[in-house]
Every structure is written in structure tokens, then in C-alpha cells.
């Protein structure tokens, strides 16, 4: 563990400031709490919000998992995991089940989370209304007045133009029938799992916002009666573990149009393979063992 820096890098005063914001976020689910985000030793937009939230939550007894796009070994996930290994000395894992704190970018793990877990999201643009109204001064008033007409108009225009709501990720949700919230750029396939037993915390460093979902908070994806929300995914099973209920990455395998679909959650996929599940392109069992 590094001697020059405090446990989990941040100084205690900064952690207290973040912790106060987290508590207010939990008390007002879905509301974006402004916080005095610090400059971190990694670039804004690369998880500084998530890293600050994780740093404020970690205890020495925690086991940390970091995923990006569902995978533990994507470069930025590796980099953030290494940061906490160095600065907090906490145990790390790739196993969703063994983790007590999971920092994620763009996915919710496939495995249902438990009451003993905390899921920390990295958020680029926390404001769900930002693409409709660029001004913070305006969107803040809209949230205050619960005036989400603009969002409904946008979704409705999507349907009129495209036959369906043309938002595939960062699909807006309404929390406890009050705040419209951006669930971060997770695919809408993950939206149903926003209702979880775990504490979910969202950190946007550059935009200086923290928001939260306590366990079992009601989270409803915005839709219309005649166009109900549809958490669709690629219509294939995983080529490695055969799962037909997981979110898939499409992998280009050659320049002849060859492709395969594999679980984006690498831990879930390898666990299923270890349990004997096999997809079309899974390595033969004997070969895998040797």
C-alpha cells in the first residue's frame, strides 16, 4: 500500500463531503446531489465520479470488483482496479458473488445482487434531460416542478418517426414516481435490474453529481401504454456458454461477415461454462481442461 496517500487516496475531509452527498442522495432517490468533485489522478470522463464514490465507501475489509462493459479485463477496469489495490490495499475479485463493492461502467452484472453488496456506477452525463435542454438552470427547474413533458414529447416523437422509442442505452427511468433519472449508459436490457437488493450509487465526477437508489426502490422505465418498455437484446444465445437470457457482445471474427455473440458479463459466462453449459462455439471440454 502506498505510503504517500491516505487510505483509498482521498483525504478524510473530501471523503466526508462525498459521504454527506451520498446520504442525501439515498434520502432523495433519483435526485442529483451536487458535490465538490475533486480532480483525480485519472481523466474526467474515465470514471472519476465512480472512483470518488467507491473511495468514500470502501472499508479495508471490502472485496472490490471493477467492470467496464461487463468485463473485468477491459483496460480501464484494470486501471481502476489497480488504483484501488495500490491506494486502498483492498482485496479484489472478478467474481460478482465474492465482491462487496462493484464499480461498473455501462453494465449491471447478470447475477442478481444481494443486500450485502454496493454497486457504484460511473456516470458521464447524469442529467436525463440534458440532450433535450442543455442548460442546468433550466433542467433543475424542470426537476423541481416535476415537469417532464419535454421527455415525453421526445419519446413520443421517436415512436411517431421510428415506430418505437429510439433509445437503446441510458434509457430514462422514473424513481418512486418522482424523479426522472439517467441510469448511466447501461443497455436498456439492464433496466429491469435497477430494482435491486443492493445499494446503488451513481457518481458523475466532471458534472459534480451523485445520486442513489436504496435497495428495492421502485424504478420504472419510461414508456407509453400502447408502446410498453421492451428490454430487448440480440436474438442469439451466447456462443460460449449457451445462455439465452444475457446481454451479448457482437464479435467480428473475420472479414467475410463472420460474427459471434458472447456474454458481455465475462464472470457470468465463465461461471456458466465451468458449470458445464456449452454454446455453439465453446471450446471442447477436454481441451478446456488440459
Amino acid at each position: 500500500m502506498s505510503q504517500e496517500y491516505n487510505f483509498a487516496y482521498l483525504d478524510e475531509q473530501t471523503k466526508r463531503m462525498i459521504r454527506r452527498a451520498i446520504l442525501k442522495g439515498l434520502a432523495i432517490p433519483g435526485y442529483q446531489v451536487p458535490f465538490a468533485s475533486r480532480e483525480m489522478p485519472m481523466p474526467y470522463g474515465w470514471g472519476t465520479g465512480g472512483v470518488q464514490v467507491t473511495a468514500a465507501c470502501l472499508t479495508p475489509a471490502d472485496t472490490l470488483k471493477v467492470i467496464d462493459q461487463g468485463a473485468d479485463d477491459t483496460t480501464n477496469a484494470v486501471s481502476i482496479r489497480k488504483f484501488f489495490e495500490r491506494t486502498a490495499g483492498v482485496a479484489t475479485t472478478e467474481s460478482t458473488r465474492d465482491a462487496t463493492v462493484i464499480q461498473t461502467r455501462h453494465r449491471i452484472p447478470e447475477e442478481p445482487l444481494t443486500e450485502d453488496q454496493i454497486l457504484v456506477y460511473q456516470v458521464p452525463i447524469p442529467e436525463p434531460l440534458r440532450f433535450l435542454e442543455p442548460r442546468e438552470t433550466e433542467t433543475r427547474v424542470m426537476h423541481a416542478l416535476e415537469d417532464y413533458g419535454l421527455m415525453h414529447v421526445k419519446l413520443y416523437e421517436d415512436i411517431a418517426r421510428n415506430g418505437e422509442i429510439a433509445t437503446a442505452y441510458a434509457y430514462p427511468v422514473k424513481v418512486e414516481e418522482r424523479y426522472v433519472m439517467d441510469p448511466s449508459p447501461i443497455p436498456k436490457f439492464d433496466n429491469p435490474r435497477l430494482e435491486s437488493a443492493a445499494i446503488q450509487l451513481f457518481g458523475a465526477g466532471r458534472e459534480q453529481r451523485i445520486y442513489a437508489l436504496p435497495p428495492y426502490t421502485q424504478v420504472v422505465s419510461l414508456d407509453f401504454e400502447d408502446h410498453p418498455f421492451n428490454p430487448s437484446k440480440a436474438d442469439h444465445p451466447c456462443a460460449l456458454c449457451g445462455a439465452d437470457h444475457t446481454y451479448l457482445d457482437e464479435v467480428i471474427t473475420d472479414d467475410q461477415g463472420g460474427r459471434m455473440f458472447v456474454c458481455s458479463d465475462t464472470d457470468y459466462c465463465s461461471r456458466r461454462q465451468a458449470d458445464g453449459h456449452r454454446g455453439d462455439m465453446a471450446p471442447p471440454v477436454l481441451e478446456a481442461l488440459s
Binding site: Y44, G45, H106, R107, I186, P187, E250, S264
Partner: peptide, 15 residues
């Protein structure tokens, strides 16, 4: 930071 973050993997959103 935000400009350059679009270099990071976005497989999931893109998919």
C-alpha cells in the same frame, strides 16, 4: 477528459 473518453470501450452501448 470527456472528449477523450470516447476512446474507451463502448461495445455495450454500440451493440
Amino acid at each position: 477528459g470527456f472528449l477523450e473518453h470516447i476512446k474507451l470501450p463502448h461495445y455495450v452501448d454500440f451493440q
